[in-house]
């Protein structure tokens, strides 16, 4: 059996391509870094469940699932939530894995959420290409958290991990808000994270 040969070749090939893909990914990455001021919370994937006991806690499970999911899928609010689909689908179809190279190439940025966020944007395109939308994922109905808040047309009650640049702190009736563009945000603790929620003070 000559399995080893082709496998090795495949790996070498993808690494080779990765080095080239990294060059392409860099400009995108820089753009993402400018926007994403709080990468630590914009998680890119699905975290391992950290508690057995929580499986008997319905509310927690739902919430956690949504937090993990939203965490991250974001990038822009309208696409929040559709990553799970995309990730799975793309993965199932090996031909699309070329996109993977972008990630692998960015070794420097692994563990740096900005990179993951960068993927989100790429994924969103892939997603549209494949015709999957936010609506057809059943879990997407749960609470979704965007990565970066918007400055216009925000829905009251929407959650975001980070604010866009240029927000100012304002006080209304003694309560502290962040005012971004035309939208007011209140900082709140959600599950394990500090998030911004759109309010109408």
């Amino acid at each position: 059996m000559n399995i080893k040969g082709p496998l090795e070749m495949k790996i070498a090939l993808s690494l080779f391509r990765a080095t080239r893909a990294a060059a392409l990914a860099l400009p995108l990455l820089c753009a993402a870094q400018l926007v994403w001021s709080s990468p630590a919370q914009a998680r890119g994937g699905r975290l391992a469940q950290s508690s057995v006991a929580s499986s008997s806690h319905g509310a927690a499970r739902t919430q956690r699932a949504s937090a993990g999911q939203s965490s991250n899928r974001a990038g822009n609010a309208s696409n929040v939530g559709n990553r799970t689909n995309v990730g799975n689908d793309v993965r199932a179809n090996n031909d699309v894995r070329a996109g993977n190279d972008v990630r692998v190439g960015n070794d420097v940025n692994i563990g740096n959420d900005v990179n993951i966020g960068n993927d989100v944007d790429i994924d969103v395109d892939v997603d549209h290409g494949w015709g999957h939308g936010w609506d057809d994922h059943p879990v997407a109905a749960a609470v979704a958290i965007g990565a970066v808040a918007v400055t216009t047309a925000a829905v009251v009650g929407s959650y975001y991990y980070a604010l866009p640049p240029g927000c100012t702190v304002v006080y209304r009736n003694g309560i502290r808000y962040q005012y971004c563009g035309s939208v007011y945000y209140s900082q709140t603790w959600h599950g394990n994270d500090v998030v911004y929620v759109v309010v109408n003070p």
């Binding site: 998680r43 890119g44 994937g45 699905r46 975290l47 391992a48 950290s50 990553r83 995309v86 990730g87 793309v90 993965r91 894995r97 996109g99 993977n100 990630r103 692998v104 692994i110 563990g111 993951i116 993927d119 989100v120 994924d123």
Partner: peptide, 14 residues
């Protein structure tokens, strides 16, 4: 340590 499965099944450990 916590694993995170990122896009395309890429597994990270935190």
């Amino acid at each position: 340590t916590r694993d995170e499965v990122a896009a395309y099944g890429y597994k990270l450990q935190h």
